[in-house]
Design a protein around this nucleic acid. Structure first.
Length: 171
DNA sequence: GCCAACGTTGGC
DNA sequence: GCCAACGTTGGC
């Protein structure tokens, strides 16, 4: 028997507006199809996700909606790998894509479930102060990807800054 | 293929 | 509400 391959778990960041769907909503529903992504680069990242991958759950635009601070609210886990986004075929949806067909769906989604919440939202301002996050698209002005890869160092730094003990979290 | 107009994102 | 910085669209 060959040795088991090393786990190639990757880390990601998912943006969501908390007034639309926040981390508490994810906890409430238990599992959520991450649909509505309509950017090719973000879609490609969705397709790279593997079951078990961990995602920082980022609350964007939180101030506007009075839903707390903008920043990372917790960690989600990928529980189902990319499959066709249901909304692209729904004419009533704002995410309907008339150019997409069931034969060759253009857009994908994954299912995510809550892993653990941060004790408090880790503010974007704090994230910006972390050396690991200096070069991230998230902290650079004008980059608006809603799905983006995060390095393991960035992931660990975020958890540390949030006061999360990685070992105690059963990640 | 170029590029101006337009729409969207998202911090502030 | 403002607006910078993108991505997309569509005329040519």
């Amino acid at each position: 028997m060959p040795p088991a391959p090393p786990p190639d778990q990757r880390c990601w960041l998912l943006k969501s507006e908390p007034n639309v769907f926040g981390y508490p909503d994810l906890v409430r529903v238990g599992c959520e199809p991450w649909n509505g992504v309509r950017n090719y680069q973000a879609r490609n990242f969705l397709r790279e996700m593997r079951a078990g991958d961990l995602c920082l759950f980022y609350h964007s635009n939180a101030q506007r909606s009075g839903k707390g601070q903008t920043g990372v609210a917790g960690v989600a886990r990928v529980v189902r790998e990319a499959y066709p986004d249901n909304l692209q075929f729904d004419p009533a949806s704002a995410y309907h894509d008339p150019k997409s067909t069931p034969d060759s769906p253009r857009w994908s989604m994954v299912d995510v479930a809550p892993a653990f919440a941060f004790p408090a939202v880790l503010p974007l301002d704090t994230l910006r102060t972390l050396p690991e996050w200096q070069d991230s698209p998230l902290t650079r002005k004008g980059t608006r990807l809603s799905v983006l890869p995060v390095t393991e160092a960035q992931f660990r730094a975020a958890l540390a800054a949030a006061g999360v003990d990685l070992h105690a979290s059963h990640v």
